[in-house]
């Protein structure tokens, strides 16, 4: 056996096997570390995906992503009124926390609303433009402002800064037609078919 080991070709083979094993080991450590990092990052992203992205700050944080980061660090999951029960359920699934009711300190569940500026009253102070987290308001200094309805998240943040109180929140008209359950139609059934 021994002389076989001493041959240069065998040594080369052994060396290459050792090198491959080392390389694999290093690679696996690298992959493990990056995967862990990626998972951590994706937890915040996954929590963020559950949040409604209205950026309203009712949870007490600056926006949805900061709140997602706080949840990942162990904050309560029931601080998001625009998301409602659906968000709490999906967050509970994701974080493995117990289902809890929405914390009323942060607001109540309400139908989706959008902000509308009464344009004839607007004095063009640009205060609402600064407050809007999604740049949904257009207008300039001393010029009338208006809100792009399709962009508005209904966050309510522009209402308070307005010095002339010309912004109001109105319920958004939903485009989709609600399916109304028909009362009798579904009953055409073999059981009830009139006797021949």
């Amino acid at each position: 056996m021994l002389p076989l080991i001493n041959q240069p070709f065998t040594q080369l083979v052994i060396a290459s096997i050792v090198a491959i094993i080392c390389l694999k080991f290093i690679c696996s450590i690298y992959i493990f570390l990056t995967a862990q990092k990626a998972q951590q990052k994706s937890l915040i992203d996954r929590i963020n995906a559950c949040l409604p992205q209205t950026q309203c700050g009712q949870c007490g944080y600056e926006g949805c992503r900061p709140y997602a980061r706080a949840i990942a660090d162990g904050d309560a999951i029931n601080k998001c009124p625009p998301g409602g029960n659906e968000t709490i359920i999906s967050l509970a699934h994701l974080t493995n926390e117990a289902l809890t009711k929405l914390n009323p300190a942060h607001g109540a569940i309400a139908p989706f609303k959008v902000a509308v500026i009464r344009e004839e009253e607007c004095i063009g102070c640009t205060k609402c433009i600064v407050a809007c987290p999604v740049d949904a308001i257009i207008g300039g200094p001393k010029l009338m402002h208006t809100i792009i309805e399709a962009e508005c998240t209904g966050c309510d943040l522009c209402v308070e800064p307005c010095p002339v109180d010309c912004i109001e929140m109105i319920e958004a008209g939903t485009e989709s037609v609600k399916w109304v359950l028909p009362s009798q139609v579904g009953r055409f059934s073999r059981l009830l078919e009139a006797p021949q």
């Binding site: 992205q53 926006g63 740049d135």
Partner: peptide, 16 residues
């Protein structure tokens, strides 16, 4: 639809 909307809002917030 809601998911799509919230994705859009998120991108708007990020650009903001």
């Amino acid at each position: 639809l809601r998911e799509r909307q919230s994705e859009y809002w998120q991108s708007r917030f990020q650009t903001h």
